[in-house]
Amino acid sequence: MTIWTAIFLLLGGVGGGLLSSIASMASLASYPVLLAVGIPPVYANVTNDAALIWTSIGSTISSTKELKGHWKETWFFTIFTVLGSIMGCILLLSFPSSVFEKAVPFFITFSGIMILVSGKHNTLNTEKQPTWLRIVYLGTLLIMGAYTGYFGAAGGVIVLVILTYITNEKFIVINAIKNVISGFANLVALIIFMFTSHIYWLQAIPLAIGMFIGGYIGPAILRRVPEKPVRIFIATLAFVQSAYFFYTAYLR
């Protein structure tokens, strides 16, 4: 690997880290970078996951202010996504990810819409939510953990939507919690894939360094940007990614 390739991966990682910590869309930057340096698609996906962990580490360190007083609920939500991630990895080892490919564009489009819609209400109060509804939300987190381990495309955006409806916290706090629980779901998937697939560690290292930097910078940017433009930005990226996956699943 040349120094220019390493710099290319580093910059791609910074972009991926920023997109992940702000908009849960790291793969829009990092995955194409891995393909561009010649890594096959299946292994690029796994290598991307190996580097993506460092985005969560960077964003968590940078978000200690937002996470203060919220660690108990963060760990509680993490349990569901981690268990789901284990289930998803088992499914991936048993069935091809192409099973999900035709449904993914619609999942992502729905998530983009919900990111916009969920920002228009301020009346949610989790203390007044019926028990059955909270069980549904937590079950959905379990499913999304499985989705992250099995396929993963825009999984963070969908988790962000679920957390918006399951807690009353400000968007920047919800985003910080999302970064933590998604990070653990990815970590579990990575540990499993380390023993079942091939990771291009040499390329993953500069990508991971870039992702750590981008993940650390992301929360600082969110503190200085109004919530509405951020939601619009996330939704726009979701629709772009949805269109791409629709093209690959139905038109290519």
Rank of each mutant, 00 (worst) to 15 (best):
T2F: 11
I3M: 13
W4A: 06
A6G: 10
L9G: 13
L10N: 00
G13V: 07
G15N: 04
L18M: 09
L18E: 07
S21R: 08
S24W: 04
A26P: 00
Y31F: 14
V33P: 01
L34Q: 03
L35Q: 03
P40T: 03
P41H: 11
V42D: 10
Y43N: 08
T47I: 04
T47S: 14
N48F: 01
D49K: 08
A50Q: 07
A50I: 08
A50K: 09
A51Q: 04
T55D: 07
T55F: 03
S56W: 06
S56M: 06
S56R: 04
S56G: 00
G58N: 01
I61V: 12
K65S: 11
L67V: 02
K68P: 08
T81P: 09
L83H: 01
G84A: 10
G84T: 07
G84K: 14
G88M: 08
C89A: 09
L91E: 04
F95C: 02
V99I: 14
E101R: 07
E101A: 09
K102N: 07
K102V: 00
P105D: 05
F107D: 08
I113R: 00
L116W: 04
V117E: 04
S118D: 07
K120Y: 05
H121P: 02
N122H: 15
N122R: 15
T123G: 12
N125R: 13
N125I: 12
K128S: 15
T131E: 15
T131R: 15
W132L: 14
R134P: 03
I135A: 15
V136C: 10
Y137S: 09
T140H: 03
L142P: 04
G145Q: 09
G145V: 05
G152S: 02
A153M: 11
V157I: 15
I158F: 14
L160D: 03
Y165N: 13
I166M: 14
T167D: 08
T167A: 12
N168M: 03
I172C: 06
N175I: 01
N175C: 03
I177G: 10
V180K: 10
V180M: 05
S182A: 11
G183F: 08
F184T: 14
L187Q: 07
A189Y: 11
I191C: 09
F193L: 03
F193N: 03
F195I: 00
T196W: 06
I199T: 02
W201M: 14
I205A: 12
P206G: 08
P206V: 06
A208C: 11
I209W: 00
M211R: 02
F212R: 00
Y216T: 06
G218K: 00
G218M: 08
A220N: 13
I221F: 07
I221T: 06
L222R: 03
R223M: 03
V225R: 01
K228V: 14
P229D: 14
P229L: 10
R231Y: 05
F233L: 14
F233M: 12
I234C: 09
T236L: 13
L237C: 11
A238R: 01
Q241T: 10
S242G: 13
S242W: 06
S242R: 05
Y244S: 12
F245A: 02
F246Y: 11
Y247K: 10
T248N: 11
A249H: 09
